[in-house]
Write a protein that binds this DNA or RNA. Structure first.
Lengths: 143, 143
DNA sequence: CTGAATCCATCCGGATACTG
DNA sequence: CAGTATCCGGATGGATTCAG
């Protein structure tokens, strides 16, 4: 996701010797490919998706997110939340209390993404057995 | 994507001291989260998605893929194709000719994923302006 | 043309310690 | 509680070279 560098600079430095290749594609042009990359940088890593899924229910506070998402480090939780907030997918609300309480929730934009993400999740659940079968067959072919 | 290690070993080594956290989630359980991770490892990087999109039209040969996807290195093209083939999303057909010709195409499984991916692409195209606006506002707030 | 193999700078992300 | 700061090993992926 390149969270860290992404946060300080708006774009990934892609300077490369690519001439606009003549490749035809029915479904998207070169610009669309850039959009995809942007979104993939947002939701292409597991943490973003898991956070979005966890926030689907409503507002969740920081420590509850940490508990709800096993294996995530404080660092990545904070970093990913900040990234999602920066992109307008997540709202952050801090309450001036002691002890401090901060709640995160999906914005309308985030919710609209959730729908698509859930479809991907459904696809995953439906096909993961078949995929595993393919992978195992591939790995043990003529071994 | 962890292509390299993923190709030799079936799973990413995740051994960590996570107890099955009590986190409730309306949309998926801990196992589903694993599925998501698997699929994200497959399509969570830009190259996989771009390759799948390019293969949407039909069979495409190796060098044409390289031309159609600006910026991809030979290494990543080969590696990603192999990964997709391993998972049963892509078919590889080699023709015994001189010069050699190898064509790649989506399997039925791959096509079914394409549909979901296209939705994500559409979402990206629809919202990327809004997202950029959020990001810019965030970056320049009280700077 | 279609890769495979190696090298290596860069980045990612977990662990740990510290703060308001 | 809700983060921030730093360290640092390992993964990532581009460039290059070699091969069938």
């Amino acid at each position: 996701m390149a969270v860290e560098s992404e946060l300080r600079r708006g774009r990934t430095n892609v300077r490369s010797n690519v001439r606009k290749a003549p490749g035809p594609c029915e479904h998207w042009n070169d610009d669309s490919a850039d959009f995809i990359r942007e979104i993939l940088d947002l939701v292409g890593d597991k943490w973003s998706v898991l956070i979005i899924g966890t926030l689907a229910d409503g507002s969740v506070r920081y420590s509850d997110l940490a508990d709800a998402i096993p294996g995530i480090s404080q660092r990545m939780l904070t970093l990913t939340l900040k990234q999602l907030q920066r992109s307008g997918l997540v709202d952050r609300t801090a309450y001036a209390e002691v002890p401090p309480r901060v709640e995160y929730s999906l914005t309308a934009l985030g919710s609209s993404l959730l729908a698509t993400v859930l479809e991907l999740a459904a696809w995953s659940a439906d096909r993961h057995v078949e995929i595993r079968r393919h992978q195992h067959a591939y790995d043990t072919r003529e071994a």
